[in-house]
Design a protein around this nucleic acid. Structure first.
Lengths: 203, 203
DNA sequence: GTCTATAGTTCGATAGAC
DNA sequence: GTCTATCGAACTATAGAC
């Protein structure tokens, strides 16, 4: 063996891999999955196209990794937002505001992650991460029911309804880039009413 | 010209094409898109695999056509259900019950159409047909607001929220085949409350 | 990482329609 | 007699197993 993978080499490879994912994320954030060709990703990462395949079995694997990393951060952000909030209603509102607020800051990226037709592997991840979001919301609903703040209801079903609603509400504005200014307030009112909160008005 | 496409031939070709779509639909309804290989579709339609390519440019085109035909029927069914109903609330309830009821009768098919990871071309159609469902619901909401039955709200945004909610609520049960018996009632209560109907109780 | 199996697609030959 | 639709085996690529 003339070559051993020393810690230094390993660190460089890890950094290279992270650079590839970052370059691909940036391209997706700018122009969607369609713009994230292997050659463009490689060019932005400062490497040769073939080097991408040292880290990923193919383009689909790379895009799946981008999805995992970016959406994983979104799930964390939403989870943390619910932990800062108090009542169940506040927690659900925090989910919408956090989710929508972050999406609107990088609309092209959000559209790509939420809806852009890409690859069955990414579809698979969409399903999985939707379940992760749903669990966060379901916890809030279940707590609210336990405390008596919300009427009795099937927390899992209602949580999936809310997650589906939030996602679908954002797809339109994100696709066109034209966000009706009362999209988020409407979603909040809808969600608040839907879970049976006693006061559904918003100044 | 020694050969012209006569009406008889054309009719036979049309029937053959329809037979291919039907065979593919049946396979998807039984075991999902994964079971709809070109050779199996051809076998069920009683033709050779190559003949499929006289009608469709490729497998993706065939699956897209299956989606168009089947989901087109679903949109029609939901639209007709809303036309039979009276008030806005009844129309929204009719959407859930029709949509969910038909889905539960052919759960494997419904899952395939709603969520099964397949091909970007089908993803594209999912987005398009979701907009069609949303328009039906938005009409009901807008009418309800106009008549004073519902509080003022952005009908388009609320309709997309409802469509997203209904779809997401069904994905779980359809994927597992285990439908929690109060899934649909929960969805109805959620939807009724969400649109601000005054009476959200259900016996 | 290699190998095998399977699935999508192509294409020359054949049969049948005009 | 010419043209077209169909067949089905061969090719190619991809994916899963070891």
């Amino acid at each position: 063996m003339a070559y051993r993978r020393t810690p230094q080499i390993q660190a460089r490879l890890d950094a290279q891999r992270a650079g590839i994912v970052q370059a691909a994320s940036d391209l997706v954030a700018e122009s969607g999955y369609a713009a994230a060709s292997v050659s463009r990703v490689a060019a932005r990462a400062g490497i040769a196209p073939g080097t991408v395949y040292n880290h990923f079995a193919g383009k689909a694997e790379l895009l799946a990794e981008v999805f995992r990393v970016v959406v994983g951060n979104e799930v964390d952000a939403v989870r943390q937002a619910t932990q800062r909030a108090g009542s169940a209603v506040e927690r659900v509102v925090a989910v919408v505001e956090t989710f929508a607020g972050r999406a609107m800051k990088r609309p092209r990226l959000a559209y790509a992650l939420l809806a852009e037709p890409v690859d069955p592997k990414v579809d698979e991840l969409r399903l999985r991460f939707r379940r992760a979001f749903t669990e966060v919301v379901a916890d809030a609903i279940a707590d609210g029911v336990r405390s008596g703040e919300l009427p009795p209801q099937n927390a899992g079903v209602v949580a999936s309804a809310l997650v589906g609603a939030f996602g679908e509400v954002l797809v339109g504005p994100l696709a066109t880039g034209q966000a009706d200014p009362d999209t988020v307030p409407t979603a909040i009112t809808f969600a608040t009413r839907g879970i049976g909160a006693t006061d559904a008005t918003h100044a």
